[in-house]
Design a protein around this nucleic acid. Structure first.
Lengths: 198, 198
DNA sequence: GACGGATTAGGACGTATGTCCTAATAACGA
DNA sequence: TCGTTATTAGGACATACGTCCTAATCCGTC
């Protein structure tokens, strides 16, 4: 049995607030207020704000890995798995419309703050990137796997940014459709190449 | 003759700092230090930080409009004009690698701050969007002009975000190449449709 | 050369925030 | 039951920041 500790509550609240308000704009008091504990208790668990950030990044890493594992288990086909990735834009559309992509906005903010945990945030991107690479490789795109992974990652980021700026949900759905069309095209091309070889 | 006033210097410095450090993370003292004036003088020109932000957004609107006008003048072909847009990613690659896209990162930050000037920042996107729409329409993509404009805008944003996260310049060049290929394909398709009609 | 508005300098003030300390309370093993 | 550790509460403290005020200085005009 896993008990939810106060520390877990803090990390969960910070995770949400960092996403919704940004890291710098979120204060100790904000988090403490959300968890309903005193600032003193807060300090017992985390000495500095940076420590909380690292804990949040760690939690997101775990979450993300779990999600990727789930997609891996849910489907045998690499194309379907990549489609799972593309569809998070729709699954999380409400939050994305309001706050953008959690990964992209965090890395962007930390870059401007020149924050020591920049690398940690980028790791979140790397997790998706590596996983997508594996899927594209399984799809038959051996040499281009990483290129394609970066491509679809970039398009997702762009959609999230503009969807947030314009608050446009139809735009998300349209772009998701186009990304899936693109994927089908890539999969077909890779498939025919495989045939040529044999 | 247009004399450069202190106010102009302040706006220029704030413009740079907001881009490099973010709006919230940039203090009055930062800007005053950059321009080498006292905080008191500062207050004479701008009563609040929000006022500076609005001035910066205004300056960026003017800059952007001037750039679009220039692209319009430089080339007769709408495809070339759109290529000019795509190539800002390469022209500004050094800054983009470090700080991302000035428009995207600002709108993202203001969204998290729930700042009153969000709409102003989005206007910057709208400027590009409308201009790109005009170009795509001139290219022969009448019905899809806005869709294509949003598409290429989103891809640029995504490239900027990931290029900043990974500090990868080759990635920028590769994606710019692919966007140009995509544009050529769109132009060709629109061209053949035009022929069908006649 | 004197006046008046425009501009600049420097500092005061209140607030918010990250950090830290100390005392009280809860949990738990001997 | 007692004592030790883990946890929580509340407040102190220094700093940074946005805002505001007042006095000094510049500069064009009469």
């Amino acid at each position: 049995m896993t008990t939810i500790t106060t520390r877990d509550h803090i990390v969960a609240a910070a995770n949400q607030l960092f996403y919704r308000q940004g890291y710098e704009h979120t204060s100790f008091a904000d988090i403490a207020g959300e968890v309903q504990i005193s600032r003193g208790n807060f300090y017992y668990h985390f000495k500095t704000k940076d420590e909380i950030l690292d804990a949040v990044i760690g939690a997101r890493m775990a979450e993300t890995q779990a999600m990727l594992d789930e997609w891996e288990a849910e489907s045998e086909s690499p194309a379907d798995r990549i489609r799972s990735f593309i569809h998070i834009l729709i699954a999380n559309r409400t939050d994305i419309k309001r706050f953008g992509c959690p990964v992209g906005t965090l890395t962007t903010e930390l870059a401007k703050l020149n924050h020591p945990s920049q690398a940690g945030a980028t790791e979140l991107f790397s997790l998706f990137r590596a996983w997508l690479s594996v899927q594209f490789r399984a799809l038959g795109c051996k040499k281009d796997a990483d290129r394609l992974a970066m491509h679809i990652l970039a398009r997702s980021q762009g959609v999230a940014t503009l969807a947030s700026a314009f608050g446009d949900e139809k735009f998300i759905r349209r772009e998701v459709g186009e990304m899936c069309d693109w994927l089908a095209w890539i999969a077909a091309a890779a498939g025919s190449e495989e045939q040529e070889k044999s």
